[in-house]
Write a protein that binds this DNA or RNA. Sequence first.
DNA 1: ACTATATTTACACACGTGTGCATAATATAG
DNA 2: CTATATTATGCACACGTGTGTAAATATAGT
Lengths: 335, 335
Amino acid sequence: MSKKITIKDIATALNIHHSTVSRALRNDSRVKEETRKMISAYADEHGYQTNMIALELRGEKRNTIAIIVPNINHQFFSNIVSYITNQASDSGFVVSIFQSNETYQQEKNIIDTIIQFNFAGVIASLSMESVDGLHFNKFKKHNIPLVMFDRVSDDINVSKVVINNAEVLQDAVELLVNKGYNRIAHISGPPHLNVFGERQRGYKLAVKQFKLDYEKIITVNKGFSMEDGKVIYDKLFSDTITPNAIISDSSVLIYGLIEELRKKKIKIPSDVALMAFGENSIMEIIEPAITSIVQPDGEIATTAYNLLLKKIKGKSDNRTETIMLSATIKVRESI
Amino acid sequence: MSKKITIKDIATALNIHHSTVSRALRNDSRVKEETRKMISAYADEHGYQTNMIALELRGEKRNTIAIIVPNINHQFFSNIVSYITNQASDSGFVVSIFQSNETYQQEKNIIDTIIQFNFAGVIASLSMESVDGLHFNKFKKHNIPLVMFDRVSDDINVSKVVINNAEVLQDAVELLVNKGYNRIAHISGPPHLNVFGERQRGYKLAVKQFKLDYEKIITVNKGFSMEDGKVIYDKLFSDTITPNAIISDSSVLIYGLIEELRKKKIKIPSDVALMAFGENSIMEIIEPAITSIVQPDGEIATTAYNLLLKKIKGKSDNRTETIMLSATIKVRESI
DNA sequence: ACTATATTTACACACGTGTGCATAATATAG
DNA sequence: CTATATTATGCACACGTGTGTAAATATAGT
């Protein structure tokens, strides 16, 4: 009903200047206790709330951070967002969400919007379409701190949080080799994104190291979905030589693949072993339970957020750092 | 490097008044084509971006909406947020995320924050702790439109988007009865939330209608999690009379229950049938595939967003409306 | 009582934009 | 070549807040 009550409204109502009101509400020492009480009483009664927009315009502080992800309804990203949001709101920050939907164009639009809204900082993970991260340099021009995670790009100099992708894929292959698998396929994403590039590098390294005859990488370029399962199946099993183990960079995709394998009566793990990134504890109840490569979601989120916070506070610090965390392999029945 | 360039910077650089620059950039007819070109050339070159904060303070328009959910890393809510975010960004809105983490206190804090930041509108789903929605009335005082979905409250008069919860639970029970099940348990949430209250009402109605001897509702009050599975199991199977069918309001929780049932060698569906809300297509690949009650996520999101948008545009319209959408039961092997 | 010091309040400005109104510059007509 | 119409630009203010500085008032010291 009533319009928003402002500091000036309080001032005119109480026949004093708004600057006095401002100081009173911020508990400035140089306002008389008596008037301070009168003011805060009136403020409380009328439900006064500081207008953050005015504060922000004044340049006092920016209290909003932006997160750019390909899709928020994928378990990994929604976990990250959840962790960041909780931590941010503890320190009084508001978090806005932007989805690139895996497209370069939307990512560019998002960047402009973030600049227009003058966000205090940005945490981002690249879309599959973005062959480079150069459009993100715009943030630097506008003095907006940026931290990237997971889907990072090599050709832009920002702080990054990643996991030991190459290493963990070597470990994965080694694990499979030790179990006797010798035709291991790798389902991945576009290699220009650091995550996938590194995983593929690790995969190839291991294939060479263990002198495997079979090397096959299948690349998905437009986001992982369950529907891809069938396509992937065709690509893998139409050859004369078929894999006896599969490592998937995506958990969602592997659900589709499992469905397809069942239709074709291909048994897991006797006919083909399975291993996938992403632990949403659903891997546990699928039969057979799927061996998964578990990323430290919470740690990734916390690290990225703290990195960003440091940049927001200490503005002069221009150094960038890349922090690498470790993924672990949770062995289950599927291998 | 360079500080943010403003409309005034352009003005002084070009030796004209900032008001002219403002008009030029908004393609106002009364600025000479020649100067307009000069101005927009300079603006482009220096990467000028409108400062939305200034615009917002001016009261022109608020371009941000807030979403309050218990947890964003639950499939249902991340789906909703994803849909809303995409639709919002199409119409130039920025979406901020707030998590109550199922607590009343955080919800209250969030409400204050949203008011301080002067959001244009709010879409919310209540926490389990919130026995009523009265704290949401604060939005009305501050003229901030509010739309609720899923976890709505009866005692606050706002526009709502819900599904036919009572009806679909009656259908579910009927389906089970027709298949020969006669001891059907219902795992639900706190009944003071409309969703759960309605589902329990529907359940009880059906139990009475089909003259079943067995009636059992188990209530979870602190958010659904996989870990609850064991607790629920104990509550259900410690009695002398045990259920031969279970309907769960949560999908996450049922994963934990399935794990527990397997441990105890209780077969699905021969020993006990299972049915759960939420279709994340994972239900499909669990063995046996779980019969699920599918909510129209996209439609819920779109409806809520459009309702909000209408309120934001036409400010005078004080009527509230409740829109009820239909859930459907997808029968699979688990019953 | 008169100056010196301490306390409390008011004034004016800044942040970046947009707009009604006045004014200046230019064009058109008689 | 003036009078009028047209067009282009500048001025001042508003949005809500906070702060440096000046002004008003009170208190103390001699």
